[in-house]
Design a protein around this nucleic acid. Structure first.
Length: 424
RNA sequence: GGGGAGGUGGCAGAGUGGUUUAAUGCGUCGGUCUUGAAAACCGAAGACCUGAAAGGGUCCGGGGGUUCGAAUCCCUCCCUCUCCGCCA
């Protein structure tokens, strides 16, 4: 969430940023927040004055009692009883105003970095890189769901029988390919200096709130009623929450973590041809990279993460492109996002396989994640994360782009040692 | 799931209703001393909110209550340790 201090000091920048993200009535919303904030502070000053008086008087009751001045003490008691009523009213106002303020700030998305392109929808995203691999494929090439079936690698029907649609069963080389990709991605992340974490994949509401899933994406997460847990939609949630409520030292930065987890998404309301096969699942596997940096280093870190993902894609020998998302297409919490898309040869369209974002202080503010600066002050850190990578559409890309006219599937060199074979 | 013990500053650990402004120790930082360091000695140091500042307020696991006043008493939830049960 945006910090109230920032909104107070830069109302125009906030309005501009929200407008760039295509938030409706941005100006009214910000003005409203400033108004509530002012009443909150006015009320707080009164409340604290009263409390101060009350504290003094209460203390003197103790002092008089110990001196034996019972009568005076009783007199003070009567006075404090009256003050207490005033304080109760002020406290109630305080609580209400604070809640109101919190609710309205929490509803605001992050504001975009100045370098984020203008635009409203995916149409307006800007391609910043596209590699030179051929997007052409031979006549009669198959979509991945046909290949997977033919090679007996993925069984969607049995997955549906066990759990439901969107829960595939990987079999044989399909299962081994999953394992190979996970290991490959983790090894590359480790080599790039990310410390591997294996976190819980159920999280409590505090964690889901801190990274911005609550309240914004409540309906997108699976929820375990009995114990009040959410199934993670991404490893970003548990890994970033490692650092909730922490004050780090500058020498500990940057923090670089990676982790493999399954991810769970309800994907409520999305149906149709585009969700066929591996295109959209309720459960999928992903290796995530997370960085926590000081504010002045975060955009450098973002580019570094993009380079890391780019190298993975090159290693997999896939045709891909990188998009800078426009203001309107970015997620709630993000200040800047790059998407990676793999070309689906058979479906003749781009599939998103990675999203790399800088959240600046948006998550850190909720996480209460700070660091001590050179002059001993505490300041919010910047959090970043990226998929490196999400498996299903990578598998789709591998099957479709690497299928050969003779029916075999070429395994890219980088994966051969993990899989132990050079074609399926 | 059942019983027991506990949750206090970076850590350890005192504190069972009124100068708690949370003792003490360790660790940290600064200083003295020293060629430098160690030791010793002296001193400093929390987070958050509010305020132009001085200052004020809040915080002893979370929430609620009793009281003029709560780390301290009551209720409730969470967590940790431990014994028993169950179990990969």
């Amino acid at each position: 969430m945006l910090s109230i201090h920032f909104i107070r000091q830069n109302p125009d920048a906030v309005i501009q940023g929200l407008t760039k993200k295509h938030v409706e009535n941005a100006s009214e919303k910000v003005q409203q927040i400033l108004k509530i904030d002012q009443s909150y502070r006015d009320n707080l000053i009164l409340l604290e004055q009263k409390r101060s008086e009350m504290n003094k008087l209460s203390k003197s009751i103790g002092a008089e009692m110990s001196k034996g001045n019972k009568e005076l003490a009783e007199q003070f008691k009567a006075q404090t009883s009256l003050m207490k009523k005033d304080i109760e009213v002020l406290e109630k106002n305080n609580e209400e105003l604070q809640n109101e303020l919190h609710q309205s700030i929490v509803a605001l998305p992050n504001i975009p970095h100045e370098s984020v392109p203008n635009g409203k929808t995916a149409e307006d995203n800007v391609t910043v890189y596209e590699n030179q691999r051929s997007k052409e494929i031979f006549e009669g090439a198959l979509p991945h769901w046909d290949i997977a079936k033919e090679k007996n690698m993925i069984d969607f029907e049995t997955g549906a029988k066990i759990a439901g649609a969107g829960f595939p069963l990987y079999k044989g080389w399909g299962a081994k390919l999953q394992r190979a990709l996970i290991n490959f991605f983790l090894d590359k992340a480790t080599a790039a200096g990310y410390i591997e974490m294996q976190p819980p994949i159920l999280v409590n509401p505090d964690s889901a709130f801190a990274t911005g899933q609550l309240p914004d994406k409540e309906g997108q997460m699976y929820y375990v009623h009995q114990d009040d847990f959410y199934l993670i939609p991404t490893a970003e949630v548990p890994i970033t929450n490692i650092y909730r409520d922490m004050i780090l030292e500058e020498k500990d930065l940057p923090i670089k973590n990676c982790g493999y987890t399954p991810c769970f998404r309800r994907e409520a309301g999305s149906y149709g041809a585009h969700v066929r096969g591996l295109n959209r699942l309720h459960q999928f596997d992903k290796v995530e990279i997370v960085q926590i940096t000081s504010p002045d280093k975060s955009y450098q870190a973002l580019e570094e993460m993009v380079e890391h993902v780019k190298e993975l894609m090159e290693n997999l020998e896939l045709p891909f492109r990188i998009l800078a998302l426009c203001g309107g297409d970015m997620s709630f919490a993000s200040a800047k996002t790059y998407d990676f898309e793999v070309w689906s040869a058979a479906q003749k369209r781009w599939l998103e396989v990675s999203s790399v974002s800088n959240f600046e202080t948006f998550q850190a503010n909720r996480l209460k994640l700070r660091y001590r600066t050179g002059d001993k002050k505490t300041e919010l850190l910047h959090t970043l994360n990226g998929s490196a990578l999400a498996l299903p559409r990578i598998v789709a890309g591998l099957l479709e782009n690497h299928q050969q006219p003779n029916g075999s599937i070429y395994i890219p060199k980088a994966l051969q040692s993990y899989l132990g074979i050079d074609k399926i």
